[in-house]
């Protein structure tokens, strides 16, 4: 199979995973104005929790869903117990979420050890699918399909339901939304649970490709930052586009220009910050 095509498939797969990571990050940052530096840890902790569920003999998808649920609860708890008290204080939020990410990293090292854990590809998806004389790895296709399904579901929820309209009203004008009777603080907790849950799910889903290891959180967080700055905060479309761009830059950069792969990754972010600080599809400038 053509090497470039394979690289393209890998880029789109990584883009799908990155979308699941950054969708929640973008919503939390764009809608609640919280720069949540724990988001990479949600991805890693979700993956480790998935490892434990797999160890109990559960199937891959059951483990992924349970890990997502666990991360939703943990994320909601962090929002309610910690971040709620720091509303509007961005520096304090940065420091607390950064501190939490170090604590979670240590906790993971303590519980799951320092060796990388590789997850098996779920049963039934380990083969390859031939499409128009080209053979695609089935699991990578599945990741893309799941990412697209979640993207569409999130978009419909935000733009087409009353719940989504309430969330947007709370973002537009939180005091007025409360006067109208909308329980804004509950909606924000819900967004946080959702973002953390999807990140945890993505962590398990990425396991067979990326494996799970100490430092996975710190590898993922900068990618989420780049994506959200490229695409614009609070925009799902921006997160989707940014994820695919970063997926390509990451894969092609490492193959073509391995010495400057990180420059290639971060340069577009610098340019966007300089010339279009609200991002390609952003609601407001960060």
């Amino acid at each position: 199979m053509n090497q470039w095509l394979l690289l393209g498939v890998n880029s789109i797969t990584l883009g799908g995973l990155l979308f699941l990571l950054s969708a929640g990050f973008s919503l939390i940052f764009g809608l609640m104005r919280i720069p949540n530096l724990t988001h990479g840890s949600f991805f890693m902790l979700g993956a480790y929790i998935g490892v434990s569920f797999l160890g109990l003999g559960l199937g891959f998808w059951a483990a992924a869903l349970l890990a997502a649920a666990a991360m939703a609860v943990i994320g909601g708890g962090i929002e309610r117990l910690l971040l709620r008290r720091l509303a509007g204080q961005e520096l304090a939020q940065v420091l607390v979420t950064l501190g939490l990410s170090f604590m979670i990293a240590d906790l993971c090292l303590m519980i799951w050890g320092g060796d990388p854990i590789s997850l098996d590809t779920p049963a039934g998806l380990s083969g390859a699918v031939p499409i128009a004389s080209i053979v695609f790895p089935a699991y990578r296709l599945a990741i893309v399909v799941i990412a697209v399904v979640i993207a569409v579901a999130l978009w419909l929820m935000l733009e087409r339901t009353r719940l989504g309209a309430m969330i947007r009203a709370g973002v537009d004008d939180a005091p007025m939304a409360r006067v109208v009777g909308i329980r804004v603080s509950r909606l924000f907790t819900l967004i946080f649970c959702l973002g953390a849950g999807i990140a945890g799910f993505a962590g398990v889903m990425g396991g067979p490709i990326l494996s799970v290891y100490p430092g996975l959180d710190a590898d993922m967080l900068p990618l989420a930052l780049i994506i959200v700055i490229l695409g614009g905060t609070g925009s799902l479309l921006g997160a989707l586009l940014g994820s695919i761009v970063v997926g390509f830059l990451y894969n092609f950069g490492q193959v073509l220009f391995p010495e400057i792969a990180y420059i290639i990754l971060f340069l577009p972010m610098l340019l966007i910050l300089l010339f279009r600080p609200q991002g390609l599809f952003g609601r407001h400038a960060p």
């Binding site: 009203a169 973002v171 004008d173 939304a177």
Partner: peptide
Amino acid sequence: FKSLSVRENLTV
């Protein structure tokens, strides 16, 4: 609510 439609302003 400026980013909502007229109808959404009422239904929320």
